[in-house]
Design a protein around this nucleic acid. Structure first.
Lengths: 218, 218
DNA sequence: ATTTATTTTTAGGTAAATCTAAAAAATTAG
DNA sequence: CTAATTTTTTAGATTTACCTAAAAATAAAT
């Protein structure tokens, strides 16, 4: 099987591929992995030899079929564990990430199959992200960033882009979260701040905040 | 905190201290860890510098207070996870060990506190071993090896010394396990094989098998 | 009490994953 | 289209946890 480090690289490449269509750059991967570009080059070479990624010098890196499969397995495990922590062990959504980072590397097919069954096959993790099934399939519902919405748009919060504890706790303080129904009341020209009606309250979010909230439009 | 390897050494020393009262020998630890004596010496030096063990060259090794505390924390985690796997995820008692070996190293106080609560504070793991509480306290009920029993002794199986899958599956095949009530009917002089009555059946166990079953006498 | 055998330690080396510093390639700018 | 800048790769070290082989200490046997 694969080392902890290899699995983490595959996961990071998977996430970055969304924004780097032509191949994930060494620097981007270095930033995501909180390491140096030279370390990335080394690891990418290793992954390439194992046929987990497609890599040509100076051309960035892409997951191979096998690499994508492994990445999705790790992501499946991560999200199932997050769901377990929130639903069964009283964790809040801002506490689960670091523990799931460790749990996702436990190697046992039976463990994850049975955990999935025990949790009754959840479709989404506590941050609204879809949980891939055992074959790596997952639904990606259409969602847009709140920052891309226009005045009078109606929608529901279905995900967060930033799932750091700091951001999630801020949302808790604002009393908004997954499932909150909102209407865009006004967008301020000057700073793109956005005024919403949520549960018959009016709140104003900064552009930065709005650009970390995913909305499913009505 | 401590590395995976350090935690495993502490656990191994804890288990071996039962039989090596004057200090665990390098070779015994090497065998338990499935490594070479020279590697053990290296690691023991490191643990000694971190004040997790007391060590003098050629004199074997003992856990310090801090080392014992850490060992018990790891053992607590191992046994709670084993209980979880059997009670919640349909694992059988011969399937849990390897997965628990990985899970026991997950670092999160909240995780283990909440898991313990979720499981309703179990006292024993699936092999009959006591689960230490958060302070490292655990009950050690008086038990003897079946191989040390005499004719006409009455008792109950309360634990296994060897918890390898092979042995546990053999017990399943014999249809005996934790809780089985038995009476010693005969001990064969020639090979120490032991004849038992269990659930109104008569079975004969080899000395080797008998020396891996813990009995609580009536 | 020496010699022999066993155990333990030391010395030197390896593989994985990281690092720094310098060289090479690619990109951007004038 | 060169020149400057940025990105990426190479080269050489470091750390952790191992290893083998040889030396040193302890234990056992004659």
């Amino acid at each position: 099987m694969f080392s902890l480090s290899e699995e983490n690289y595959l996961k990071a490449i998977f996430h970055l591929e969304r924004n780097y269509k032509g191949g994930v750059s060494t620097n981007a991967l270095a930033e995501e992995m909180e390491t140096k570009a030279s370390s990335v080059t080394d690891m990418v070479k290793k992954l390439s030899e194992k046929n987990l990624v497609k890599y040509k010098k100076y051309q960035g890196v892409k997951l191979s079929k096998a690499g994508r499969k492994t990445a999705l397995e790790v992501i499946r495990k991560h999200r199932l564990w997050e769901y377990f922590l929130v639903e069964k062990l009283n964790f809040s959504w801002d506490e689960v990430h670091d523990v799931a980072e460790e749990l996702e590397h436990i190697k046992s097919d039976k463990l994850i199959t049975e955990l999935d069954k025990f949790l009754e096959y959840p479709r989404r993790d506590p941050h609204g992200d879809p949980i891939p099934d055992a074959q790596g399939n997952f639904v990606q519902t259409s969602k847009v960033l709140l920052s891309a919405c226009k005045k009078s748009d109606l929608g529901k919060i279905v995900g967060v882009k930033d799932s750091s504890a700091a951001f999630l706790q801020y949302l808790d303080k604002l009393d908004i979260g997954l499932g909150s129904i909102l209407e865009v009341r006004h967008i301020e020209d000057f700073d793109q701040s956005i005024e919403l009606e949520v549960d018959s309250n009016t709140i104003t979010l900064s552009h930065k905040t709005a650009s970390n909230l995913y909305i499913q439009l009505e």
